[in-house]
Amino acid sequence: MVAYLIRRLFFFVPIVFGVMLLTFVLFFVVQSPDAMARRVLGPKATPKAVENWLHNRGYDKPLLLNRTGQAPWHDSLFLNQMGRLARFDLGKSDVTNRPLAEDFREGALPSLLLTVPAFFVGLALSVVFALYLVFIRNGVVDLAASLACVALMSVPVMVYIIAGQFLVAQVLNYFPAFGFQLEGFSTAKFLLLPVALMVVSGLGADVRLFRAMFIEEMGQDYIRTARAKGVSSALVLLRHVFKNGLINLITLVVASLPFLIMGSVVLENFFGIPGLGNKLFSAIQAPDFAVVQASVFLGSLLYLGGLLLTDICYAWADPRIRLQ
């Protein structure tokens, strides 16, 4: 198992390299560092200011290899960046010049406060609804619910937010529809609405997916065996279908677990939650390419971490799987 995981990790190295190459080409080759400086500093920046800005960030170095002879060959933009990231140094913001690691550490908690409850509440609700729909499958309620799921999926997340804020603020005049303060327990009142909206916006797709997964399980031979033993339909569902479906479900869901730390761009921005999603939003508006590049790096690591986690969970949950 350990050997397997280590081999997987080695397999990830070229992928992370590919991702870094991709963003590098995008930010520094497709767009020249010069153009980047002008976009960050604005159209009125003097050539001197641009030059300074580039120099301070090392963006004025040769792209791939340093062949000027005045510096070692590896003192190039790309290799410096790769070296930095290999040491997990995320670099500094293009705009504020603050170390990004600090920024990200700050944003992680608010993001997690939003996404973790939303994730687990959403998961639990979806599984319960999906199981219930499988129980009453092909009935009128099931059909109506399937339609409702498609309808829920067809609404963009902003519309949920705008409608939700509007209802809560204007019509119900209830808990704060906007704003965020980290102050112990009372933070919850700021999170109630965004968490609810995140749950609702994902519900349709999840219920549908899980329902399909459980229905697929219902058609298996061992379900027929269970019924032939005299197991009641409720128990067939809760024991036989659920456990098998759960294995598929875990492997599907676990992959997205690491991403919770990245927060939600749209939701955090709407509600002024100072998480990673919101930082990314500001970086897009600024524009701050360093933040975006570091986020991509982090995101790909999280993705690969998710894959690894999936493998481990699979081996743990499914007796048929042995990692070798």
Binding site: A228, G230, N244, P319
Partner: peptide
């Protein structure tokens, strides 16, 4: 009714199916 059927299945009339590899639940 459903309850009487459940008592019948397995209790009075039991089954063996064709495909043993898929007829047993893999996770139990």
């Amino acid at each position: 009714n459903a309850r009487e059927l459940r008592a019948l299945r397995g209790g009075k009339i039991a089954y063996v199916f064709q495909e043993p590899s898929t007829s047993l639940n893999p996770v139990f």
